[in-house]
C-alpha cells in the first residue's frame, strides 16, 4: 500500500433523465491496491465503471488515469491506456470460440495472430478455460462466461482491472478460486477495483471498501469496519425492506 494514485475520480455527476445516478462521487485508487466498491441496487456502481471506461460521459467531474485526464475519451482509447474491464452482463463474442475471443483481446498487444494466440492460451490456462478453448463461447455456462470475461480483460495486459460483479451468480467454491486467481494477478502488480453487490463477495480480498448509496459515497474504510458501520447497515436494510415491501 501507499503507492501513488493510479486512478482519480473527482466529483463526478451523472443524471439519466430525472434520475441522478452519480451525485458528486470522488474516489482515489492507489497503484497495486485491491479496492472494492459495494452498494445496494441502483447505487451507481455500474454507472461509475461506465464513466471511468468511457462508455458514459459524465455531466460534471473529472477522471484521470496515471496523471492523465481521460474524461470524455473513447472506450477503446481508455482500454489502450491500460484499463481493462469486465461487464456485469457478460458480453462474449458468442459465435467465436473461447480461444478466438481471447485472441481478439491479445491482439491489442501483439501484432501477429500467432503471438496473440500464444498469449491467449497462456491466459486461458491461468483462468482455467484451456480445455474449453475450442468451444463456441455461446455454449459456456455462466461461471465459464464470467471467467472468459476475465480472460479477455487479462489478455489486454492491463495496469488497472475493473471487475463488475464477477462473483455474482457463482458458487462459493468458485468464488474462492476466483479470489485466489485475483490475488495472483494483483501480486504481479495489477491494480484491481471490483464492484460487488454484497460485502461478503469482497471480504478477505479487498483491502479497502467504498460504499455507494444513491449515487454518492456513503462510507469508506477497511472491510471489517464497513461491516459494522450503522449507516451501511441502514442503507442495505433500507433497500432490503423496500424490496420486501414490494409485492
Amino acid at each position: 500500500m501507499g503507492g501513488r494514485e493510479i486512478l482519480v475520480v473527482e466529483n463526478v455527476w451523472k443524471r439519466f433523465g430525472g434520475i441522478v445516478a452519480l451525485a458528486g462521487v470522488s474516489i482515489e485508487v492507489r497503484e497495486g491496491e485491491r479496492l472494492a466498491i459495494i452498494g445496494p441496487n441502483g447505487s451507481g456502481k455500474t454507472t461509475l465503471f461506465n464513466v471511468i471506461t468511457g462508455y458514459v460521459k459524465p455531466d460534471r467531474g473529472r477522471v484521470s488515469f496515471d496523471g492523465q485526464d481521460i474524461t470524455g475519451k473513447k472506450p477503446h482509447q481508455i482500454a489502450r491506456l491500460g484499463i481493462a474491464r469486465t461487464f456485469q452482463i457478460v458480453k462474449p463474442f458468442a459465435n467465436l470460440t473461447v480461444e478466438e475471443n481471447v485472441v481478439v483481446a491479445a491482439l491489442s498487444r501483439n501484432r501477429s495472430v500467432e503471438e496473440a494466440r500464444r498469449h491467449a492460451l497462456h491466459v486461458l490456462e491461468l483462468v482455467g478455460l484451456y480445455d474449453k478453448r475450442n468451444v463456441r463461447a455461446a455454449m459456456l455456462n455462466l461461471a465459464e462466461k464470467k471467467r472468459l470475461e476475465l480472460a479477455k480483460a487479462l489478455a489486454l495486459n492491463p495496469r488497472l482491472l475493473l471487475l463488475d460483479e464477477v462473483a455474482a451468480g457463482l458458487r462459493p467454491s468458485e468464488i474462492k478460486e476466483l479470489k485466489k486467481l485475483l490475488y495472483k494477478i494483483n501480486s504481479e502488480g495489477v491494480t484491481i477495483v471490483m464492484v460487488e453487490h454484497v460485502l461478503r463477495a469482497v471480504s478477505g480480498f479487498a483491502e479497502r471498501v467504498v460504499v455507494l448509496h444513491h449515487g454518492s459515497k456513503l462510507a469508506e474504510g477497511r472491510p471489517e469496519d464497513i461491516a459494522k458501520d450503522p449507516r451501511v447497515v441502514d442503507a442495505y436494510l433500507g433497500s432490503l425492506a423496500s424490496q420486501l415491501l414490494e409485492v
Binding site: H76, R85, V104, V113, L156
Partner: peptide
C-alpha cells in the same frame, strides 16, 4: 480475414461494446 483484422471485424459484429473494451476502434 484470417489476420488480425478478421478477428477485430468479427468482434465488432458480435458485440461492439465488448470490442471497444478490448481497445478496438469500431
Amino acid at each position: 480475414l484470417r489476420g488480425p483484422i478478421g478477428y477485430k471485424l468479427q468482434a465488432i459484429r458480435e458485440d461492439e461494446d465488448a470490442a471497444m473494451a478490448l481497445a478496438i476502434d469500431p
